[in-house]
Amino acid sequence: MVSLDLLLNALAAGLLLGGFYAAVSLGISMAFGLLDIVNIAHPVFVILGSYAAYIMNARFGFDPILTGVLFTPVFYVLGVVLYRIYYASFERKGAESLRGLVFFFGVLFIVEVSLLLAFGVDYRMVEARYIGESIHIGPVGLAYRLLVPFVVGVMLTGALYWFLARTFYGRAVQAVAQDAFALRLMGANPFKVKSIAFGLAIATAALAGALLIMIGPVEPALNREYIGRVFAVAVLGGMGSISGTLVAALLLGVAESLTATFSGPSWSVAVSFAVLLLALAVRPAGLFGR
């Protein structure tokens, strides 16, 4: 039963990959779905998180997860500052959509080029004792370099879900794009609410980046490969839905893994676009969109 083992292993690897995809997509889903901020630069912040993990690992021997946690507040502040610039230059003037897109494209470009200048085009990676190892459950092998990102990705998703569903600021985040004026009548300041939310969206990239470089080597232009994937996940999940993002990410992970196993890895990138197109055609609001 070699093919059954192969199938089980492909399924397991896909699920693990999916937990990681959720971590990468949360920020996009939040920005587009809850804040109406067209932050197409999100994947490049994930890459930035990867380089943070790389430097701290190469210089000080830090575990990538530790770096991800340490840099989460740094990325939060980065997100808040970025939102304030965006707000002052575009949102306040009511010119957000198209010019906002140009703004975030510019941010993407600047960060990518800065990384290129600082680190070159070489692939970088991190070292940690557990990265090459795996555990076996029956015929299924779970590599730590996928298992750890899965666990951390699911925990990150859970934390964000808890924040949005259970805290006062979280509920305000869910409301702010629907009616910012009404939110003021509830006693909340929409600008502050969006600052916090965008800060958190960017903050997720610190951990997601650490996970990315744990899974495989990273170079500055890798964000381009991820843009299609994160959009597929966010659209399929229903923009702004955190639980939807997780389910969609797991689905995409499994779909990619099965494709890579049975048709060859070169097909797996096409899977995300197929999923994206299918989602747009069949259910534009996504699986969990409201």
Partner: peptide, 25 residues
């Protein structure tokens, strides 16, 4: 607190979520 003209509810949030937002203060 104001109950505004046109009600200004959060249409895509549930009844309970709307009420909880009222308790933001």
């Amino acid at each position: 607190t104001l109950v505004p003209e046109g009600r200004r509810l959060f249409p895509k949030l549930t009844v309970e979520e709307n009420l909880m937002l009222g308790a933001f203060r």
